[in-house]
């Protein structure tokens, strides 16, 4: 070991706050950590690989005839629906995994480091966009295999994929909040599912809104998940950006603006 003297406390340059460059740099490093962990735990990809494949084929076969007359006509409705449902579910898993991660001792070290407080959370959520990207690719791929041919071609599909990934990252702050405040990973799962099911099933994901009871329709139409699905259908099928696109983007941003500060505050107040 080196016997050279360390720099004494009095002579060090000290800063009281992390600036925005440091926030970015710290978050990216934490995201890099998340990616390294994926390599060692491929099981973290089960939900975003198996679910698109299984659910897409199952839903097409089961609902296709009943809802749209045949499988082929159902695909333009179903693929955006199942895509959004899969990715929103995957963002729930983000919260559960964050909780598990936080229970490990390494988070104590992160807390003791002079880094931006938001970085361990933002980094973990950022790394998970890789999972969302996999889900998006596989769902669109399954759609293609089953015969879905978007009229506007690849660019609309690509743009809608990006929108969905961004939306999922925003939504994941809700589940990250539960992740930070809940006592256990199982608790996160329980509470999150209570949020997830109304969001995804009380939407236009699988069934036309016109077939739902009147009293339910206002909620379904205002549900950000419905807006997102509408936006994806328009973008992927016709290549157009409509009201749904802007409203879903706005909804997602509002979620981040509410839940990111709440989550960081809860994270900091916890030992």
């Amino acid at each position: 070991m080196a016997t050279t003297q360390i720099v004494s406390a009095e002579k060090r340059q000290l800063k009281n706050h992390a600036n925005s460059a440091q926030v970015m740099s710290n978050s990216l490093t934490m995201a890099y950590r998340g990616l390294l962990k994926f390599r060692r735990t491929p099981e973290q990809f089960f939900d975003v690989t198996l679910q698109p494949i299984l659910f897409t084929s199952m839903f097409v076969v089961i609902f296709g005839g009943a809802i749209a007359g045949n499988v082929h006509n159902y695909l333009p409705t179903l693929i955006p629906g199942i895509l959004v449902q899969t990715v929103v579910t995957a963002s729930l898993v983000t919260g559960v995994q964050l909780r598990e991660d936080m229970d490990k001792g390494v988070f104590n070290r992160f807390k003791s480091l002079p880094i931006a407080r938001i970085a361990p959370l933002a980094g973990a959520l950022l790394a998970d966009t890789v999972r969302y990207a996999i889900a998006v690719t596989l769902t669109f791929g399954m759609g293609y295999l089953l015969g879905w041919r978007p009229e506007d071609g690849i660019s609309g599909v690509f743009a809608s994929g990006l929108l969905v990934i961004f939306f999922a990252w925003c939504i994941s702050w809700i589940f990250a909040f539960f992740g930070v405040t809940a006592r256990s990973a199982a608790g996160v799962q329980g509470v999150s599912i209570l949020i997830l099911f109304p969001l995804t099933f009380l939407s236009n994901a699988f069934v036309p809104v016109a077939t739902m009871p009147h009293w339910l329709r206002p909620f379904v139409n205002a549900n950000p998940v419905s807006l997102l699905i509408g936006a994806v259908r328009q973008l992927a099928s016709a290549g157009t950006i409509g009201h749904d696109f802007w409203f879903s983007l706005l909804g997602a941003l509002v979620i981040v603006l509410i839940f990111a500060p709440l989550t960081v505050r809860a994270y900091m107040s916890k030992a």
């Binding site: 800063k15 009281n16 992390a18 962990k37 001792g105 070290r109 003791s112």
Partner: peptide, 26 residues
């Protein structure tokens, strides 16, 4: 001023404060 103090300390906790899934270098 916790952020200043964090620049002056190193902490090794009672439970492992390293990432078990990653290598020593990582």
């Amino acid at each position: 001023n916790p952020q200043v103090v964090r620049q002056l300390i190193g902490v090794t906790g009672q439970s492992a404060t390293v990432d078990e899934l990653l290598s020593a270098t990582e």
